[in-house]
């Protein structure tokens, strides 16, 4: 608080309807947390579908998860955790006024996010080739269970929506890089970096649950 109320502070970012930077920062952060609540419940619906069907057909999940590659799932988990680390480092750089470090960390994060999507792309195309397609296009007969299509529907919905969130995150971070290059952020104002970071960590948290629930059924 003390470093933001110094007199030589830049105040270009301060909206007229806020009293000071702290109020604006706190409000933005709380807004992001409220948004994350909605994200958790949004994915929550899919987790409910997952749990209900798993409670009905446990053997289906055992059989069908054989088709998912644990190794690449684990690699992707590591990639996302790494990107969470770099985003946290990016916020730290912004807090310390190290704009160069902020930009570098953001680029690494974007790189890791793209890696995640590339791996996901190969996973998807390998399944498409086998005929494991979402919905009624499902034509694979390697899983001997009449409801195999439903497992993969849930799989595609969960990972697909998560993938869309990763793409949105990439877009947001590219935007942050541009803003950072224009010297918008400094230790007194880094709200967009902070709240994008929160969003990105949530994307990571959701994958932390998706990984064992989808890939690690032995």
């Amino acid at each position: 608080m003390s470093q933001t109320s110094s007199t030589e502070e830049k105040l270009d970012h301060l909206k007229h309807y806020f009293v000071d930077s702290d109020q604006q920062f706190e409000a933005s952060k709380m807004g992001m947390w409220v948004f994350l609540v909605t994200e958790i419940l949004f994915f929550g619906g899919l987790f409910v579908a997952y749990i209900v069907y798993r409670s009905w057909y446990p053997e289906l999940y055992l059989l069908a998860s054989e088709e998912l590659d644990t190794f690449w799932g684990a690699v992707n988990t590591a990639v996302l955790i790494g990107s969470s680390l770099t985003v946290a480092m990016a916020i730290r750089s912004a807090q310390l006024n190290q704009i160069k470090g902020l930009i570098i960390n953001l680029w690494i994060t974007i790189g890791l996010a793209c890696t995640f999507m590339v791996i996901k792309y190969f996973e998807y195309s390998e399944k498409f080739a086998k005929g494991i397609l979402p919905g009624s296009a499902y034509s694979y007969d390697g899983v001997e269970h009449e409801k195999a299509n439903i497992f993969f529907s849930i799989y595609y919905m969960m990972t697909g929506l998560h993938g869309i969130h990763v793409l949105i995150g990439i877009g947001l971070m590219i935007w942050l890089v541009f803003k950072a290059k224009k010297k918008v952020f400094h230790s007194g104002y880094y709200t967009p970096v902070e709240i994008t970071g929160l969003y990105w960590h949530l994307v990571d948290v959701i994958w932390i649950f998706l990984f064992p629930l989808l890939y690690l059924i032995d």
């Binding site: 949004f42 994915f43 929550g44 619906g45 899919l46 579908a49 069907y53 979402p134 919905g135 009624s136 296009a137 299509n149 439903i150 529907s153 849930i154 595609y156 919905m157």
Partner: peptide, 16 residues
């Protein structure tokens, strides 16, 4: 999420 799943149900026949 419900309406998204319903839309997918119509678009792709995800079957949930």
């Amino acid at each position: 999420i419900t309406l998204l799943l319903l839309t997918m149900e119509r678009a792709l026949g995800i079957g949930i």
